[in-house]
Amino acid sequence: MASQGTKRSYEQMETDGERQNATEIRASVGKMIDGIGRFYIQMCTELKLSDYEGRLIQNSLTIERMVLSAFDERRNKYLEEHPSAGKDPKKTGGPIYKRVDRKWMRELVLYDKEEIRRIWRQANNGDDATAGLTHMMIWHSNLNDTTYQRTRALVRTGMDPRMCSLMQGSTLPRRSGAAGAAVKGVGTMVMELIRMIKRGINDRNFWRGENGRKTRSAYERMCNILKGKFQTAAQRAMMDQVRESRNPGNAEIEDLIFLARSALILRGSVAHKSCLPACVYGPAVASGYDFEKEGYSLVGIDPFKLLQNSQVYSLIRPNENPAHKSQLVWMACNSAAFEDLRVLSFIRGTKVSPRGKLSTRGVQIASNENMDAMESSTLELRSRYWAIRTRSGGNTNQQRASAGQISVQPAFSVQRNLPFDKPTIMAAFTGNTEGRTSDMRAEIIRMMEGAKPEEMSFQGRGVFELSDERAANPIVPSFDMSNEGSYFFGDNAEEYDN
């Protein structure tokens, strides 16, 4: 993207840094990872977990959730003011799984939030270390993106479920800051804005008074975040219109849905970061690795190297396929839920299948599930090659597409044709070009129609051997075009429920 120079890199967003050079960025990201790792080690000690239990991804998720809940100030305040039966607002906890007599047992633990905050700050040299908290939120978000298709949420806001490739980060909490905003897809931002506008339509006082002023500035800020994701002048001009509207209503909703559809071809720039579970960072720190000293990046080879040398386990339900569970977590670790499966298959070195073909449910185990038949197995999170994460949407291309997802959002900077089903997408653009945004709409449609099938995206960008740390010898991959490109292809993934 041309304006790259004016933006802070995501590592800076990730670490609240002012302008830093590459070495400083690597050190501050490393410091953040160190903090998460030290916190995780301490929690495993508190909970008396064995090494194996500490490497269980379900335990990692519970521990991450506990610290996120302990620092969720708004919710904590709300819980104190609106006490609900049987919930102690000062405590947080969740299921911890232990191996007892050759069987997995679930144990519900409860801790004072104050105590968890103390352990977290102690692991982070006394700081609140917001960057580390956001990092864990993005890992949870990436896992949700890989596990669930947001059909219901899309339909509720009037969008087409086939636009799911635009929904990265749709389950990120509001408090995820600049680093969170960077990884949100165009569809996620559109959905947040539509929800806001709908509230304004239904509630006369939404934009009024002292609160209304705050609401208005939040609305304009979200519009600017979305505008910054678009790469064409016409899309940005249309966002200006939406932002400046005196009284946002149905016309703005129409414009936003139009823009979301246009992003299936004229893709937005959305950041991709490899955020790993805390149970990967903990053992690495415990083994003596100093992330701050060595430096770390979320968008280069580092996460690949770390996963190459990590042992992570997962509980497996009786009829689940461990290899499929591994694929789910591998995609989440690489922030690749909406990437082209052919690119992923090449990088991973084994075939990556669409969601609907995987015999696996989510990673988390519900409290009512029976533990008797639970097994555990090693997650295979290694890769054959590594590639640089991208934040450009890439230019655009036609490809055989599917009944489910009709476009992709690249996660890796790797040369390819970008699949999208042009006739299906263009069919949504018939007729409606009147109104105050008509010239911009016409211009956007013209650009979409001009998108050429034979153009290559990320020209000359390749993948790298894991021994090639400096990215000196790019390998331009070859793809098996007979395979499906979309992950949520004609899909039956479970729906995400809060």
Rank of each mutant, 00 (worst) to 15 (best):
M1S: 09
S3T: 11
G5C: 14
T6F: 00
Q12C: 11
E14V: 04
D16T: 13
G17I: 06
R19Q: 02
Q20V: 00
T23E: 00
E24T: 13
I25N: 01
R26Q: 06
R26T: 02
S28D: 00
S28E: 02
V29L: 05
G30Y: 01
K31S: 06
M32S: 13
D34T: 07
G35A: 13
G35P: 03
G35F: 09
I36P: 01
G37C: 09
G37S: 14
Y40S: 03
Q42K: 13
Q42W: 05
M43Y: 08
M43A: 10
C44S: 03
E46F: 13
L47E: 05
L47F: 09
L47P: 12
S50W: 00
Y52L: 03
E53V: 06
G54V: 05
G54M: 06
L56W: 02
L56K: 03
I57K: 05
Q58H: 12
Q58R: 11
N59V: 07
I63T: 06
E64Q: 06
R65N: 13
R65Q: 07
M66W: 08
A70F: 01
R74Q: 12
R75T: 10
K77I: 13
K77N: 12
K77R: 15
K77M: 13
E80S: 14
H82D: 00
S84N: 15
D88S: 13
D88R: 00
P89D: 02
K90I: 13
K90S: 09
G93D: 06
G94T: 09
I96F: 10
I96T: 11
K98S: 11
D101V: 11
R102S: 10
R102Q: 02
K103L: 11
W104G: 06
W104N: 09
W104P: 02
M105D: 09
R106A: 08
E107S: 12
L108P: 14
L108A: 06
Y111D: 06
Y111W: 05
D112I: 07
K113P: 07
E115H: 12
E115V: 06
I116W: 05
I116C: 14
R118V: 06
I119K: 03
W120P: 06
W120Q: 08
R121M: 12
Q122E: 02
Q122Y: 00
A123T: 10
A123K: 02
N124Y: 13
N125F: 12
G126L: 15
G126F: 03
D128F: 14
A129F: 03
T130D: 01
G132K: 04
G132L: 06
L133V: 09
M136Y: 04
M137R: 03
H140D: 11
H140E: 13
S141W: 06
S141N: 04
N142M: 11
N142C: 09
N144A: 13
N144P: 05
Q149K: 11
Q149W: 07
A153N: 08
V155W: 01
R156P: 06
T157V: 15
M159N: 03
R162Q: 07
R162Y: 09
S165R: 00
M167V: 06
M167Q: 08
Q168N: 07
G169E: 13
G169Y: 05
S170M: 05
S170F: 10
T171C: 15
L172I: 15
P173T: 11
P173C: 05
P173F: 06
G177L: 06
A178L: 14
A178D: 11
A179V: 10
A179R: 01
G180I: 03
A181T: 02
A181M: 14
A181C: 07
K184G: 11
T188V: 03
T188A: 14
M189C: 15
M191S: 06
E192V: 03
L193A: 10
L193M: 15
I194E: 09
I194Q: 10
R195S: 07
R195A: 04
I197V: 15
I197S: 10
K198D: 01
R204F: 11
R204N: 03
R208L: 04
R208T: 02
R208Y: 05
G209D: 11
N211Q: 13
N211H: 04
G212E: 07
T215R: 02
T215H: 00
R216P: 03
R216V: 06
R216A: 08
S217W: 08
R221S: 08
R221T: 03
M222T: 13
M222R: 01
N224S: 10
L226D: 09
K227E: 12
G228C: 13
G228L: 09
A234P: 15
A237M: 15
M238Y: 00
M238V: 07
M239C: 11
Q241P: 02
Q241L: 06
Q241G: 03
R243E: 04
E244G: 12
S245C: 10
G249Q: 12
N250C: 13
N250V: 10
E252K: 10
E252H: 07
I253V: 11
D255H: 08
L256Q: 12
L259A: 14
L259P: 06
A260S: 15
R261G: 08
R261A: 04
A263Q: 03
L264K: 11
L266F: 07
R267C: 08
R267V: 00
G268S: 15
A271Q: 07
S274D: 05
S274V: 05
C275G: 09
L276Q: 12
L276M: 14
L276W: 05
L276R: 05
P277V: 10
C279N: 12
C279T: 11
V280G: 05
V280R: 05
G282I: 10
A284L: 11
V285G: 05
A286W: 15
Y289L: 14
D290W: 07
F291D: 08
K293V: 11
K293F: 02
K293L: 07
E294L: 09
G295I: 10
S297E: 04
V299E: 08
G300N: 07
I301T: 04
D302A: 15
F304R: 00
L307V: 07
L307I: 08
N309Y: 02
V312H: 00
R317I: 08
P318M: 11
P318S: 14
N319Y: 00
N319M: 04
N321T: 05
P322R: 05
S326W: 06
L328Q: 09
M331S: 07
N334G: 08
S335P: 06
S335K: 02
S335C: 15
A336H: 01
A337F: 04
A337N: 09
E339R: 00
D340W: 01
L341H: 03
L341P: 08
V343H: 00
S345A: 08
R348K: 12
R348A: 07
G349T: 08
T350C: 12
K351Y: 09
K351H: 12
V352T: 07
P354W: 00
P354E: 03
R355I: 08
G356W: 12
K357Q: 10
K357D: 08
L358F: 10
S359A: 14
T360V: 15
V363P: 03
V363K: 03
N368K: 14
N370P: 14
N370T: 08
M371A: 14
M371G: 02
M371V: 14
D372W: 07
A373E: 01
M374D: 04
S376V: 15
S377C: 09
E380I: 08
L381P: 03
R382P: 05
R382I: 02
S383M: 07
Y385V: 10
R389V: 01
T390N: 12
R391D: 02
S392I: 10
S392N: 08
G393A: 15
G394T: 00
G394N: 07
G394L: 00
T396A: 14
N397V: 06
A401Q: 10
I406M: 11
A411Q: 00
F412N: 07
F412V: 07
P419V: 15
F420D: 00
D421I: 12
K422P: 00
P423A: 11
I425H: 00
M426Q: 13
M426S: 08
G431V: 11
G431A: 10
N432K: 13
E434A: 13
R436N: 07
D439H: 10
R441H: 15
A442I: 15
A442P: 00
A442Y: 02
E443H: 04
I444V: 15
I444C: 15
I445F: 05
M447V: 12
M448H: 06
A451D: 05
K452I: 12
K452V: 14
P453C: 13
P453A: 08
E454F: 10
E454H: 06
E455F: 04
S457A: 11
F458D: 01
R461E: 09
G462I: 03
L466S: 01
S467G: 13
S467L: 13
S467K: 15
D468M: 02
R470W: 07
I475H: 03
P477K: 00
D480G: 02
M481Q: 07
S482M: 02
S482C: 06
S482Y: 03
N483G: 00
E484S: 07
S486R: 01
F488K: 01
F489P: 01
F489E: 01
N492F: 12
A493G: 10
E494Q: 11
E495T: 09
Y496E: 02
D497C: 09
D497R: 00
